[in-house]
Design a protein around this nucleic acid. Structure first.
Lengths: 185, 185
DNA sequence: ATCGTTGCAAACGTTTTGCATAAGG
DNA sequence: CCTTATGCAAAACGTTTGCAACGAT
């Protein structure tokens, strides 16, 4: 096991639970036809896979709140080895891949590791990333999608997805910085 | 050593050499005050670092053409161990970091590894990434920068940089796909 | 002579794999 | 009962580091 010192913080609202998800600030929630569980079971069916305890534990945990996380965080939040509800590291990795496959989670790379977030029933969005406190802040831009389509059309490119991350320093950290400056004076 | 099977292809023009760089299609070249070498020597001076053979070899190689590359590709392109002009793996990694520090190269993550491209004297741009042939295609969008500023202002976020990658299938691979479909009929 | 630089080997952190065992349908 | 899923340990992968030897200024 490797307990990485660097944690990924989050600035998204937690979901109300059930078949509804929180949306980036100022945006309407999205109604979803089925719960993530129902959708996952459908996916397992269609692939001839089985609905094990471990998969249930992970699905339950991952969708119990809306946050960005990596494999290591997820593992630390779950029961330790030996305890009930524990899931081994390889199984966590394997299952996260299945969730992505099933359309439940989105995955992207940040600082060298894979970060996951809700996809199913959650509106498309992009991120501001504070390199100081490692917070991810969500935002939405229709204009960005327009650019995406236009550029792709110009290059006769078939779009599957995109990733837009603005890196810098968030409002909180800027305030903190200024305070520190004042303290030094 | 790890010789990764997956290579990163490229669809950028090669530079004319010297103090001028190729720009994404349709865009004007950018005049630069000094050559990358001159700038790097200045950087070394300012940091009290030394201009070794290895650094010269790497700088020369990296700026001899305009392309995207990762550490492994660079190492494979250079002379093997024992031969003149060889640079060890750790030194390649160390030196690439210095190039980034010196403002000569930009670095971003793709498929789990670090990809480098020319920065010095080269216009800001973003990428279309073909997940089939792994080609990176450059494009430029002023509008995107406007969105970046607007979103950041709204969140009182201090921008340092951004990364925008559109993933999908490039024009060539689409053609290839259609041909294969026809062949099957 | 001094201090930065290199190469080696070995560590690192994250993710994946082979394989024997356990468990879902 | 048949197959898929799991846990363990170990490998794989890209990258970094400690250190003794080397080399630039």
């Amino acid at each position: 096991m490797s307990v990485s010192a660097s944690r990924l913080r989050d600035r998204s609202q937690s979901t109300g639970g059930g078949a509804e998800s929180a949306a980036p600030s100022g945006l309407p929630r999205v109604q979803v036809a089925q719960t993530p569980l129902a959708r996952f079971e459908e996916y397992l069916q269609s692939k001839g896979l089985r609905n094990s305890d471990q998969r249930r534990v992970l699905l339950e945990h991952v969708f119990s709140r809306h946050s960005h996380f990596d494999a290591d965080q997820l593992i630390e939040e779950l029961p330790r080895r030996g305890a009930k509800g524990h899931v081994s590291r390889p199984t966590v990795y394997r299952t996260l891949k299945e969730f992505v496959d099933a359309g439940l989670l989105r995955c992207f790379q940040l600082d060298g590791r894979s970060v996951y977030e809700h996809d199913y029933g959650y509106p498309q969005h992009d991120h501001l990333y504070c390199s100081q406190c490692r917070t991810l802040i969500e935002f939405r831009s229709e204009e960005l999608l327009r650019i995406r389509e236009q550029v792709s059309a110009e290059h006769n490119f078939l779009v599957r997805s995109h990733r837009f991350i603005i890196q810098g320093v968030c409002a909180d950290c800027r305030k903190r910085r200024q305070r520190r400056k004042q303290d030094l004076v």
